[in-house]
């Protein structure tokens, strides 16, 4: 990680011109659950950029894990992302990481949100998944919301392809609920991530919000649905504000 950080940071900075805000709001030490909206399809620039930013800001000595779909870890980039602390999205892995005192980043929207159409770029959509709130409550760790804009401009995302996933029975056989349809470079049309696309150099803006202590805010037995609604509303307000700042797609 220490050896890869300078090179990766240099490349990511040149390609995505990241603008990262609110790092000073992160808890200075101890475990935290960072909850992000997921963008950019299989390339997901915020995954790499946030990992690099946390490592640069806190030092690589502070452990930080990100949860990812098994297919990412089994892909050709799997060995690299594992070195950057990516582990399979599994509650047991997240619990173990939090118990060890690490920061853990989750993207509750997963493949549903990451392949949303480009015209829904400024929309937070976790698809009603609330497991991350129970994870934070079980481990009594603060939630740090992380809002990203720009990933959906790295290609033209046309459809999640949910109907295609059902028609081909990929949802049952491969547990894939989406077969995304995208247009990008260099091959034009891409279905289900094949052929892979090179991400367009869209400007990526990330903002971290104030940490939320669920029990301090909602009492000893928090209402998960209420916490979910308020978290989504806060993230959506930030994402909408970032979108209003944006003058041009890709250029930022």
């Amino acid at each position: 990680m220490r050896e890869l950080l300078p090179a990766m940071w240099l490349l990511a900075s040149a390609w995505f011109r990241p603008d990262i805000r609110g790092l000073e709001r992160m808890p200075r030490q101890g475990p935290a659950l960072i909850v992000g909206n997921h963008t950019g399809g299989t390339n997901s620039p915020e995954v790499l950029i946030s990992q690099l930013a946390f490592s640069a800001y806190f030092g690589v000595e502070r452990p930080h894990y990100q949860l990812a779909h098994r297919m990412v870890l089994n892909s050709p980039v799997g060995s690299i992302v594992r070195r950057f602390g990516t582990v399979e999205a599994d509650p047991a892995n997240a619990e173990a990481a939090l118990k060890s005192g690490a920061m853990v980043t989750v993207f509750p929207g997963g493949d549903y949100e990451v392949f949303r159409p480009s015209w829904d770029s400024a929309k937070v959509d976790f698809g009603g998944r609330t497991g991350f709130l129970r994870l934070a409550l079980r481990n009594d760790v603060p939630i740090v919301p992380m809002v990203t804009l720009g990933g959906q401009e790295t290609a033209l995302f046309l459809s999640r392809g949910e109907r295609l996933a059902r028609l081909t029975r990929a949802d049952r056989v491969m547990r894939l609920k989406t077969i995304p349809i995208m247009i990008g470079v260099p091959f034009g049309l891409s279905v289900g991530g094949f052929p892979p696309l090179l991400p367009l150099p869209a400007k990526v803006t990330i903002e971290l919000l104030e940490p939320i202590d669920l029990r301090a805010r909602y009492g000893p037995e928090p209402d998960v649905d209420e916490a979910y609604r308020e978290l989504i509303a806060a993230m959506q307000a930030t994402l909408s504000a970032l979108q209003r700042e944006r003058r041009l797609p890709i250029l930022g």
């Binding site: 220490r2 050896e3 890869l4 950080l5 300078p6 090179a7 940071w9 240099l10």
Partner: peptide, 13 residues
């Protein structure tokens, strides 16, 4: 000094 294959380049930048 930054570690790694492109550490020197990052240092120069």
């Amino acid at each position: 000094s930054s570690a790694g294959p492109l550490g020197l380049l990052a240092d120069l930048v």
